[in-house]
């Protein structure tokens, strides 16, 4: 590994880039939600309030840390960085400039699936470690929800891989160049992926594990200061990560319909395509989450098991037959 790769992983288009993207996403989320609700959203922090998530983050890091007495202190204190690491590592498998990611292997998707599972597992561990009553209830819901959406999510991710005949994200992106976007090949898989991402992100209508009017702040109730800052940042980063994953798997990622072979500024065009697609998916998620109420956990489980799982299986079958 040479120095350039380290810079790529840590700065651009790796960690730092994605963290700032996460802040922008969070801001866009709040702004879009506010606009849809008839408000204007954050205004004071930075121009049009764009620095609001940054302010939240730095404020949290400067606060006092409180560790509950009966908590598992090791996990409680050291868990949040690991929780943060899951989507952070996942992002380096996603091509941002060019058709190849920083790190690419033939088995990318297996690792991505592991990251998604690990992130939920970590949330569960953090919740249990804090040993609060609300957290415990919340973790019950989290695990149940995870058990429901995991299968459809997995099948939805596998569909484009089957279509591309490749388990590498870079490979899948390359297979979609020349406007062969998989959203046209596996539309149901795309829809299932978006719905499952809402559940993975704990956004309405699946914000069941941190339903604030039922169980306070869910599994995050006991966290304060720096751990909370990490947890919040991880949530936004997961947001970006899942949007980027959806963009790469279904919308061709960095591969655009036109201007695919210019000599100058090729990287800039790749980046532009990538960002446009990520924000498009982000806006879709913002809109869905703002327009819906929270469902109950059993209703969510019903939806995933009786509707989305068969649908994604059907999609997978169609893709296999088409190939």
């Amino acid at each position: 590994m040479d120095a350039l790769e380290v810079v790529e992983i840590l700065v651009f288009p790796g960690l730092t880039f994605f963290v700032w993207l996460a802040f922008v996403f969070e801001w866009l989320d709040r702004k879009t939600t506010a606009r849809m609700q008839g408000r204007i959203g954050p205004m004071l922090a930075g121009p049009r309030g764009i620095l609001q998530p940054v302010a939240d983050f730095f404020k949290l890091t400067s606060k006092e840390e409180i560790v509950p007495q009966f908590s598992d202190k090791l996990v409680f204190e050291w868990g949040p960085p690991f929780f943060f690491a899951a989507p952070a590592i996942g992002t380096i498998f996603i091509p941002v400039v060019g058709l190849n990611a920083i790190v690419s292997s033939p088995y990318d998707l297996l690792f991505i699936l592991f990251v998604l599972a690990f992130s939920t597992l970590m949330a569960g561990m953090l919740g249990y470690a804090s040993a609060g009553r609300f957290s415990t209830i919340s973790i019950g819901r989290l695990v149940l929800q995870y058990a429901s959406f995991e299968i459809p999510l997995l099948l939805a991710i596998v569909s484009p891989a089957v279509a591309a005949g490749n388990l590498s994200i870079s490979g899948i992106v390359q297979a979609q160049s020349n406007f062969h976007w998989f959203v046209f090949v596996v539309p149901i898989g795309f829809a299932v992926f978006i719905v499952s991402s809402l559940a993975e992100l704990e956004k309405p209508p699946f914000d069941i594990p941190d339903a604030k009017t039922e169980i306070a702040a869910g599994w995050m109730t006991e966290f304060s200061a720096r751990p909370l800052a990490y947890v919040k940042l991880t949530e936004s980063l997961s947001y970006v990560f899942l949007s980027a994953l959806a963009a790469s798997l279904f919308l061709g990622g960095t591969a655009g319909p036109v201007l695919t072979n210019v000599t100058i500024l090729q990287d800039g065009i790749y980046l532009a395509y990538f960002l446009i697609k990520v924000f498009a998916i982000g806006f879709a998620i913002f809109a869905i989450k703002t327009a819906l109420a929270r469902v109950r956990i059993n209703q969510a489980a019903n939806l995933f098991w009786t509707v989305l799982t068969p649908l994604s299986l059907l999609q997978l079958g169609i893709v296999i037959l088409l190939r």
Partner: peptide
Amino acid sequence: TPRYDAERLGVEVVASPRHAD
């Protein structure tokens, strides 16, 4: 709510006293 919109100022209502300033 929309007419006053405290979120403009960065105010957010949180669900746990541990998150609060």
